[in-house]
């Protein structure tokens, strides 16, 4: 395509510059190709659109909507209607405002958890898988140890000790990340172990490449597929686990709301006032689905072997 092949008689400077251009444009076309591949997957595109729409909605609407999530209205246990599109609960909270607020806090927690646990899990898994021996033994036993600690008991204790200070979404994210990185680290470790059987790892070693270079340049990019998929699943997992923690008193507490808290509160009246539980649950499913679709799209778009 570049039109600059040939046997090369003397290093002409122009030719050289032209080649670098060709190289840069190949890079650009690579990014364009990745975008095209992402756009070709309809589910990924739809997922992205839904996700952006939900986020925009939660950001803009509070400024326009007549009720705030903490307002107590005069309508108790009203069914969805013109005044309250999602209905109200027994003390008069407008559920539309509450659901939007809940989406915002839940997304904040989920994003932070997904980010933190993916980074920690990837680093721990990579070190354990690549260096093996003592590293592997120690790190994986630490992971086992954390898994054996009953998370709910710890949560109860933490909620008790921290009291009001515990009602922060940041602390909740840290507690969740401390547990959720473990499955990912196992996944990364296993993926690396199988990737290391490839000859290109030995080839890099034969060139004298450092361990860091081999991990960052040769191993992790090839493990990106499973890592991305797991990170997107983590978003959904974080929202659900966060809900049970909130139920026990750690993390987001009233008057602050989250999707988990709303579902938790509404499920008791699921048969008599289904809207209390239905709308937050619907958005939870929507968010998890669209994040997973986006993850699938990303995984395929970042694979150079894709067929576009």
């Amino acid at each position: 395509m570049s039109g600059v092949q040939g046997s090369g008689v003397g290093p002409a400077v122009d030719e050289h510059a032209e080649k670098i251009d060709a190289y840069a444009s190949a890079r650009n076309s690579q990014i364009a190709g990745a975008l095209r591949a992402f756009a070709r997957r309809r589910s990924a595109l739809v997922g992205l659109a839904v996700l952006l729409l939900i986020i925009a909605f939660t950001v803009i609407t509070p400024f326009l909507w007549k009720y705030s999530y903490s307002d107590i209205t005069v309508d108790f246990s009203a069914a969805p209607g013109w005044r309250h599109p999602f209905g109200t609960d027994s003390i008069g909270h407008d559920l539309f405002a509450q659901t939007l607020r809940g989406i915002a806090t839940s997304l904040k927690v989920a994003t932070l958890v997904a980010l933190l646990s993916t980074v920690v899990g990837t680093v721990v898994g990579a070190v354990a898988g690549y260096f093996g021996r003592a590293w592997d033994a120690v790190l994986m036993r630490v992971a086992d140890l954390i898994m054996t600690i009953p998370v709910l008991a710890i949560t109860l204790v933490l909620a008790n000790v921290l009291g009001a200070k515990g009602s922060s979404w940041f602390l909740l994210s840290l507690v969740l990340s401390a547990v959720l990185w473990i499955p990912l680290s196992r996944l990364v470790r296993g993926t690396l172990l199988s990737l290391m059987k490839n000859d290109y790892i030995d080839a890099a070693r034969m060139l004298g490449a450092s361990d860091r270079r081999i991990i960052i340049r040769h191993l992790l990019p090839n493990a990106a597929g499973p890592i991305i998929v797991d990170a997107t699943l983590m978003v959904g997992r974080a929202i659900i686990v966060a809900a049970s923690m909130e139920y026990l008193g750690l993390g987001i507490q009233a008057p602050e709301v989250s999707l988990g808290l709303l579902i938790q509160r509404g499920q008791g009246a699921a048969t008599t006032q289904p809207w209390l539980f239905g709308f937050p649950a619907l958005f939870l499913v929507l968010i998890i689905l669209s994040v997973n679709f986006v993850g699938d799209g990303l995984r395929d778009a970042l694979d150079p072997r894709r067929t576009v």
């Binding site: 000859d199 034969m206 990019p221 090839n222």
Partner: peptide, 20 residues
């Protein structure tokens, strides 16, 4: 190692599929 080169058996696995 820079004085030693290695040619591998299987051209399918001896290249990192993610780099040009």
């Amino acid at each position: 190692r820079k004085d030693v080169g290695f040619v591998f058996q299987d051209p399918a696995t001896s290249f990192n599929p993610r780099i040009r």
